[in-house]
């Protein structure tokens, strides 16, 4: 993903377009281009769908999570493959006899919350560490860079496995903590590189000569010009975090009852795949579509902000 570092010219955009002039017009351009892209629109719609399940499950099902289950109905498939057939259990029952559709709807929240929170935490960390390290250089840079190297060098799954085996309680926050601890490094490196490139620009020297404080230089001048590639990477990171969380679920160190997630449902389904394929197919579709929507959004945003590819 080192290619996203390319072109500091792309870095002149800001999120809301608060900076006047040139950058606002790039953001404006980008937005205009985005609106025309079908993949962007499709991704956005998908995301809205899944997001509404995560935020307001009651819109989609009248059942609460893990309630009204009957173990004796477990692994009973749907009566019809058509989910709109009007059956009371359009997706059948899950491995413990709960309505699969309801469990599926309630399973949306965990992955989305994990993906977004992990990325936010990682983004915050990387902006902070990356700009400190890039701007000040010297021993601080040395220290932060080596710590980043260490965290980057740790085999990801191995680290998560060890930490999560040690925690007996696996709620969403334990997973968020572990994934954040593993996922801040790439963005930090990206940020550092951007800051180093930006700090030698004339306008930064000018601001310094005018007596601006370090903080002001970093926040008003460097960051707005350096952060775009990091943001673009962050949209991809959401998908990666959701995917990583599902791998942890698969390995049996992910979320525990009463939390629900598609990853756990997939993990439950693996042993049943041959006899009850629907158990794996439904959550796989939901999870894949969610990841797909984040990936499509990320792609579209990157293309829109990268003038070289216009």
């Amino acid at each position: 993903m080192s290619n996203t570092q390319s072109g500091t010219a792309a870095a002149t955009a800001t999120t809301g377009g608060t900076v006047a002039g040139r950058s606002a017009s790039l953001a404006g351009d980008a937005w205009r281009e985005l609106r025309r892209k079908p993949s962007f629109i499709a991704g956005l719609l998908l995301l809205l769908l899944v997001g509404s399940m995560a935020a307001f499950p009651s819109l989609w099902t009248s059942r609460e999570a893990n309630e009204q289950c009957n173990a004796r109905m477990a692994k009973t498939g749907p009566e019809s493959l058509n989910p709109f057939s009007g059956s009371e259990h359009p997706f059948g029952f899950d491995v413990s006899g709960c309505d699969y559709w309801a469990q599926m709807v309630h399973g949306a929240r965990a992955p989305i919350v994990i993906g977004i929170t992990v990325t936010l935490v990682a983004l915050l960390l990387s902006v902070l560490l990356g700009s400190l390290s890039g701007y000040y250089g010297g021993w601080l840079d040395m220290l932060i860079s080596r710590i980043t190297d260490i965290a980057f060098g740790l085999p990801f799954i191995l680290g998560a496995l060890v930490v999560l085996t040690a925690f007996p309680e696996h709620d969403i926050w334990a997973i968020v903590l572990v994934l954040s601890a593993m996922m801040w490094t790439t963005m930090t490196r990206l940020m550092r590189g951007q800051v180093i490139a930006a700090k030698d620009q004339d306008y930064v020297h000018a601001a310094k000569m005018l007596g601006a404080s370090d903080l002001r230089v970093i926040f008003r001048h460097i960051l707005p010009n350096a952060i775009a590639p990091v943001f673009i990477y962050a949209t991809l990171n959401i998908a990666l975090a959701i995917s990583a969380a599902s791998v942890l679920d698969f390995l049996g160190v992910g979320l525990d009852y009463p939390s629900l997630s598609w990853g756990v449902q997939l993990a439950d389904a693996q042993a049943e795949f041959l006899e009850h394929p629907y158990l794996m197919v439904y959550p796989a579709i939901f999870l894949s579509l969610t990841l797909l929507s984040f990936l499509m959004l990320g792609d579209a945003v990157r293309d829109a902000f990268d003038p070289k590819l216009r």
Partner: peptide, 26 residues
């Protein structure tokens, strides 16, 4: 190709692995 690669990234590895094992192997 772009769509295909996006799809590959989106489907979890273990789902791919189980599907491949059962279809191509068993």
């Amino acid at each position: 190709i772009l769509g295909g690669t996006t799809l590959i990234i989106a489907v979890p590895t273990f789902v791919v692995a189980y599907s491949a094992q059962l279809l191509l192997g068993v």
